[in-house]
């Protein structure tokens, strides 16, 4: 089972890397956005004297993960349903979980690479200092919870995508919308009307971004957050709940094919 899942992961990676368009859009797009935002607002600083470009770098990691986990999973699954990949795999002894784990491995690898690229941009272009070991540890669990939640939600949402060609576009709608209202593109979130803030806080993106900002920004920056504190406990809780929701949804909605049996 392990060997089979690894084999799937290997094949997923090969196929991803050979698709030039996917590599550019999944990988480099968030980095490009970061460069743009960072350069446009580069000279600005927050009240605590933290460079705005640093804030963006940290928050963008959330966007990066949404791209590599949520969109890649969702679009990938929709595509596999349509081009016969699932049909073929279904006829082999491979269990469904191996397929999902294989995709999960791809997504994990991509997310790590994506985060590295974004952090790299932050460090090399915007002089962002790297955090200490304790913060890296926090980064670890926030990162893993985020990737898991986004992946499982991506699997669940792919069931709604009827035509794989549009999958990327469809999935990007909630992704981009959430970037605006969850404090990634627009920070601090307090600029949003109260009701919008509350609605946005139901979703995991706000909390992911908040968590990453804790990791990469100095402690004083937390005054910019809603409630004036990092609220890591809430971050953990919300992400944890979304992980569970995502897992349940994906187990319930996973289909080998789009036609009913």
């Amino acid at each position: 089972m392990i060997a089979v899942s690894l084999s799937r992961g290997h094949v997923e990676l090969l196929q991803f890397l050979r698709d030039r368009t996917a590599v550019v859009f999944t990988f480099f797009f968030p980095a490009l956005l970061l460069l743009l935002f960072g350069t446009i607002f580069g000279s600005e600083s927050t009240d605590q004297g933290v460079a705005v470009s640093r804030v963006f770098t940290a928050s963008m990691i959330a966007y990066g993960i949404l791209n590599t986990a949520f969109v890649t999973m969702g679009a990938g699954l929709a595509m596999d349903r349509e081009d016969g990949t699932l049909k073929r795999l279904r006829g082999t002894p491979m269990p469904a979980s191996a397929y999902l784990i294989g995709k999960g491995l791809l997504v994990l690898g991509l997310s790590v690479a994506e985060a590295a690229v974004l952090i790299g941009v932050g460090v090399l272009v915007f002089d962002m200092p790297l955090p200490d070991a304790a913060h890296w540890l926090t980064f670890g669990w926030i990162f893993l919870l985020s990737v898991f939640a986004c992946s499982t939600l991506g699997i669940a949402v792919s069931a709604l995508v009827k035509n794989a060609r549009n999958a990327g576009a469809i999935l990007n709608v909630p992704v981009v919308a959430l970037q605006f209202v969850s404090g990634v593109f627009i920070h601090p979130m307090s600029q949003l009307p109260d009701w919008l803030e509350k609605v946005a806080s139901i979703f995991p993106v706000r909390w992911m971004a908040q968590g990453f900002r804790y990791v990469f920004l100095p402690d004083g920056a937390q005054t910019q957050e809603i409630g004036g504190a990092w609220n890591l406990g809430t971050v953990a809780m919300v992400l944890g709940v979304w992980c569970v929701i995502g897992l349940i949804l994906c187990l319930v909605t996973f289909r080998w094919s789009s036609r009913d049996r």
Partner: peptide, 9 residues
Amino acid sequence: LQDADDAAD
């Protein structure tokens, strides 16, 4: 299979 397009790459 007869009409699959998978694994093109």
